[in-house]
Design a protein around this nucleic acid. Structure first.
Lengths: 153, 153
DNA sequence: GTTGAAAGATTAGGTAA
DNA sequence: TTACCTAATCTTTCAAC
């Protein structure tokens, strides 16, 4: 689905847009050493190849009324029944991410809620909706959350 | 530092920009029912209040050559010495997020690397740099990673 | 908050290497 | 194909109200 970056121009454009999603084509063109229209064509191709999946404002969760984050590891209670837990959990707005993981548990979720009470309610809902056992690790402080950067050489 | 959203116009603008970080002011103005300039002033204020922390392209980690993700729980080996682990770990490009957590371990990291071998090297580096013990949970599949959404009412 | 006009950015269509 | 040029259209900005 996604093809890798092809050259240094692509790398430059992706790095610039990862750092500033609203960078203009002329800014990008200057950084990449291309004309504006060549830059435009490059960016479009990056979008169409799925390298750039979209653009988003980075919003402070606290401003949204979601100051409490937690990791929830979940284990299906009935391994026999069809496992549609991720699809069901995607319906819950509080669930920000869902990973299948190696180890004792099957899935790991990152959730955000307004309060401890709301976390309790959410865990109850997760257990019911997905028929799972939960093990929750509360986030006390977020030191940083940023975009992954490819290793420099 | 960050003030909460003030009214429905703010909520609309933030929701639109979270969904499309490159939305134009005229698009936003139409969604919010304001003039373009009033919209611009609102967005500026949201940025200055820290509600909107920035804008970023959402880049596929695989295209960046980072197909392997893992959660790394870490425990300081020497509780006596000053704990500057988060600051040290921020230096490592492969470390995407760092949280202080409740529970047996002190911190939880999300890391991205090119290969199992690179994960091994990274864990060695994390142990040395931060003087910690690590417990790693490999991500097998990412079902979704998205922006947190405030609960609807 | 609104309007409006100037500066700047984006887009599409055409041309050349 | 890939990059570039140009002109029309949109967008952003900032003044005045």
């Amino acid at each position: 689905m996604t093809s890798p970056l092809e050259d240094d121009v692509d790398r430059t454009l992706v790095a610039q847009l990862a750092a500033d999603g609203r960078a203009t084509l002329s800014t990008l063109a200057a950084a990449a050493g291309l004309s504006v229209s060549a830059t435009q064509a490059r960016v479009r191709r990056l979008e169409q190849r799925g390298v750039i999946r979209g653009y988003a404002a980075d919003v402070d969760p606290e401003a949204l009324g979601l100051p409490l984050a937690a990791f929830v590891a979940i284990t299906p209670l009935d391994p026999a029944q069809p496992d549609d837990a991720p699809a069901r959990l995607a319906e819950l707005d509080a669930v920000e991410a869902c990973y299948s993981v190696a180890g004792e548990e099957s899935y790991l979720l990152l959730v955000r809620v307004p309060s401890p009470r709301a976390l309790d309610d959410l865990l109850t809902e997760i257990r019911q909706v997905a028929n799972v056992r939960t093990r929750t690790t509360v986030v006390l402080q977020t030191f940083f959350e940023r975009a992954a950067r490819p290793e420099r050489r």
